[in-house]
Design a protein around this nucleic acid. Structure first.
Lengths: 201, 201
DNA sequence: GCGTCCATGTAAACGGTTACATGATTGC
DNA sequence: GCAATCATGTAACCGTTTACATGGACGC
């Protein structure tokens, strides 16, 4: 299971479940998402298998924390996963399913609004990744090609996220202008890409 | 649920569960995969909700077939889904998780083999989509921008798959050469991108 | 006093995969 | 005779999501 192995990777540095959730959201979420309600029981399972161990710690604020870290057996398991073949899962994109059938509605304006909203979604994600990259680049003059091996690999994964999202946006832009060109001329002013607000015809 | 709505979309043309599985594999799988063991019970559920209905039919070969098609209520439900906001799910890529932590192994040769195997995987998928596109282009002179609205939307989704995979390959190639450049010079002949076969040193 | 953040978890439901079960027909 | 294809389904399991539950500390 991938979540288990990602947790093992992160737990090379000791952390609590709550800490791990923050790391997921900040640095991992572009290729793997996880909720706390999944992280906690998974940590329990890893501990029962002796891949991680935990100790109690106090917290500045709020309830006590449980700090986990990797055991030698856990590190062995992590390395076996890393040395194994790449794992591919089926990719599922519901919005492409919607687009696939959208001809059913026969409404180019709706298709355009749909594509613009898809574009916005990806643009926001791209902005987040780019700002992550910018911060890193500014903080470390070795970025990207003279980073230590560990960080270099992290950077490759980040770069993948950025390139992918750029390609998503390219497709959105291309699709928006091609769909706009298909719209009946009479409707262009209402929904087209260069709609002029407040000029009724 | 997206699978339900994709089935509704496909069932604008009558089909059996078995037929639908073939369509998934041939034309849908680049954005949504489905197994027969999931399709059959889902069709049952759609029928109980009166979104599709079925009749028995005989088959040339093998057991009798059950042919489903869309009811007016099903079409209404499909249209509501299509007119709604785009649905985004979290994307999960286990192989990026592996790469993210691969510095742990400290073995550039392994990273390179890993990336090459990722590249092969995507290259095969891209070849399949490109051949799908080629067949379509050859069969219909209206491809891609003068296709009927229905097909035009299908084509947009296909184009997304192709652009995405092209960007995956770009990233693989870029990453392979950047990782190769990081490999100690002594090891380049063994695992590097220009390894010369059969010339031991 | 109220909302947010810190911090841990449990329970039920959901969507999907893997394995199993059955049996006829066609092509090698 | 054997494998592949046609065709339908069930059962057990797995991983993830959503909702629920609790409660202290800090800032406004």
């Amino acid at each position: 299971m991938s979540l288990e192995h990602i947790l093992l990777g992160l737990l090379r540095e000791p952390a609590s479940g709550y800490d791990l959730k923050r790391v997921f959201d900040e640095r991992i979420s572009h290729f793997w998402a996880a909720e706390l309600s999944q992280i906690y029981p998974t940590l329990g399972r890893l501990e029962r298998r002796r891949w991680v161990r935990s100790r109690r710690a106090e917290s500045k604020r709020g309830p006590g924390r449980r700090i986990y870290d990797l055991t030698p057996a856990g590190r062995k398991e992590l390395r076996a996963w890393l040395a194994g073949p790449p794992q591919f899962g089926d990719e599922r994109f519901a919005y492409l399913g919607q687009l696939f059938f959208m001809g059913e509605l026969g409404d180019w304006g709706l298709t355009l609004r749909f594509l613009r909203s898809v574009r916005e979604h990806f643009a926001a994600k791209l902005a987040a990744l780019r700002s992550l990259e910018r911060l890193w680049r500014e903080a470390d003059p070795r970025y990207p090609d003279r980073l230590p091996a560990d960080d270099f690999h992290v950077q490759l994964a980040l770069r993948k996220g950025i390139l992918s999202l750029e390609s998503h946006l390219t497709w959105c832009d291309e699709s928006i202008s091609r769909a706009a060109a298909r719209m009946p001329a009479a409707a262009r002013g209402r929904h087209g890409p260069h709609a002029k607000k407040g000029i009724p015809r």
